[in-house]
């Protein structure tokens, strides 16, 4: 196999995919109160989830396009900031995703315990 990708590269790619999968769940879970981009990143980092800024902001916009988030510019304070909050549709979806996640997590936990 001459053209095999180095292990570190494959690992980085797979880790990124894993994180990308859960990022939607993490984001929706933290937006029950309006937050602007940096505050959300900070909040996630405090909880132990480091997110690249370049990944989060486009994701927020996509979630809003799908109707899962709402946003508005807030001009209070020293400069305008865009605040995002979960929509009613987002809340419903979050509950469903939460159940899915818990089932999946328990299955994976079980599978990994056998390794």
């Amino acid at each position: 196999m001459a053209n095999q990708t180095p292990l570190s590269e494959t690992q980085a790619k797979l880790t990124q995919e894993l994180r990308r999968g859960v990022l939607v769940l993490a984001t929706l879970s933290q937006l029950d109160e309006p937050k602007y981009g940096y505050a959300l990143i900070d909040r996630l980092a405090q909880q132990g989830l480091e997110v690249e800024q370049g990944t989060l902001y486009p994701l927020l916009r996509r979630l809003e396009e799908h109707g899962l988030l709402q946003s508005e510019w807030n001009v209070e304070g020293n400069r305008p900031r865009r605040y995002y909050v979960i929509s009613e549709m987002g809340k419903t979806l979050l509950q469903d995703l939460k159940v899915d996640w818990q089932q999946l997590a328990s299955v994976i936990e079980n599978l990994l315990s056998q390794v």
Binding site: Y36, G37, Y38, A39, Q53, Y57, W73, P80, R81, R82
Partner: peptide, 10 residues
């Protein structure tokens, strides 16, 4: 506008 505000926040 959002990018600029975020950069300054950071």
């Amino acid at each position: 506008a959002e990018l600029k505000s975020t950069l300054i926040d950071t």
